[in-house]
Amino acid sequence: MNLMDQTFELLKSQNRTALIPFLTIGDPDLDTTVEIIQALEAAGADILELGVPYSDPLADGPVIQRASERALKQGVTIRTCMETAMKARQAGVKMPFILFTYYNPVLQMGLPYFFEQVKAHDISGLIIPDLPIEESGEVRRLADESGVSLIPLVAPTSHERIARIVGNASGFVYCVSSLGVTGERATFHQGVEEFIQTVKKYTTLPVAVGFGISTREQVEHFSEICDGVVVGSAIVRQIESVIPLLSNASTKQEGLLQIRNFVAQLKV
């Protein structure tokens, strides 16, 4: 049982839902990212998705695409994302980390070495949105051997495919609340609650929901039916809005406080 599994077990015993922020590593820079991670944990985040910036992020909307562009200009790679996770650990951060990365950077590192590094940098889980279930066997095997959870994204589809996807899951199952790319939304696809209940029929793992969740009201709503709620674009947009503050030493703490306060008000 890795750190993420332990966290879900603890939250379950407390009848609480995990708040799972997403952020793009290296936006606006790597040192500031460590401070943002500290602010997120202080705000009540339970688990953190570390987004690896990518030049062709097919699952991501414009807010996260812009963040990726800013991070890539800083020279951020999948390796520096892992190093940033370790720097956050060294700075006292305790919450589990999930690496959110497209498959090509993983392949470029080489699968065995990649998993060695994931384990060495104390990362509990992986989300690889462009890795289909049909092609995930080797990755899943190495993840299992490394004690790392390979977390699937599951969207509304046939019961047969849902059962197949979640049957190979570990850590938790990530339900996509809205069709299309990530981004803040006022409404979600019709039947999302029914879809989540369908997923829960096929797994005993925790079930989290993400894509488009941006307000406290939405977090409260999904907390009634899920074990975890992922908030991404809204937090990345908040970071984007305070980059002028973060870029100035005299106003940096104010920028970090605004990010912390935004995340704190999402916590239910």
Rank of each mutant, 00 (worst) to 15 (best):
A85N: 13
D56C: 07
R89S: 08
G171F: 01
I64F: 02
F100G: 01
A208I: 03
G255I: 03
Y174S: 05
E220F: 09
R140P: 00
R237D: 08
L257W: 06
K252R: 14
D227V: 03
L111D: 00
L48I: 05
L40I: 04
I259V: 15
T215Q: 06
T33W: 14
E134I: 00
E145W: 05
R164N: 12
G147W: 00
E69H: 12
T32M: 07
G44Y: 09
Q117K: 15
A163V: 06
L126H: 06
Q6V: 00
Q90W: 07
L246M: 02
L99I: 07
N248K: 03
L205R: 02
V166H: 02
P244E: 02
L246Y: 01
G147L: 01
Q74C: 11
A18T: 05
R185N: 08
S170Q: 15
T187H: 15
K73S: 06
F195E: 14
A59M: 05
S136N: 13
S214W: 05
E254N: 03
S177Q: 09
R164V: 07
A169E: 10
S13T: 06
E35R: 14
G92M: 09
T33A: 14
S241K: 07
I239V: 14
V176Y: 05
A169V: 06
T32R: 09
S178E: 09
R164M: 13
K267T: 12
A67C: 08
E41R: 06
E254Q: 15
V166D: 03
V229L: 14
A249F: 09
E116C: 03
V199A: 11
G26F: 10
D29Q: 14
N168W: 06
T157A: 12
V207T: 15
R260Q: 00
A71H: 01
R89K: 09
K87G: 04
S178K: 15
E35C: 07
A45W: 02
G180P: 12
E138V: 02
L205Q: 04
V181I: 15
D130M: 04
Q14W: 00
I127K: 08
L205I: 02
Q90H: 07
T101I: 12
V173W: 13
S149N: 15
V139C: 10
G125K: 00
V176N: 04
P112W: 07
E41L: 07
Q14C: 03
P112L: 08
Q38M: 14
T204F: 02
E184L: 05
D130K: 02
L23F: 08
E116W: 00
D27W: 01
V63F: 08
E41M: 12
F211M: 13
G191D: 10
F97K: 03
G137F: 05
T32G: 07
L131M: 12
M1N: 07
R164W: 03
Y102N: 04
R66V: 04
A234F: 04
E193R: 13
T33L: 12
H221G: 01
R237T: 01
Q197L: 13
K201C: 09
K267P: 14
E145H: 11
D5R: 12
V209K: 05
H121D: 11
T80K: 10
E217Q: 15
Y202P: 07
L246S: 02
M86E: 13
E134C: 06
S223A: 15
L72H: 14
P28T: 14
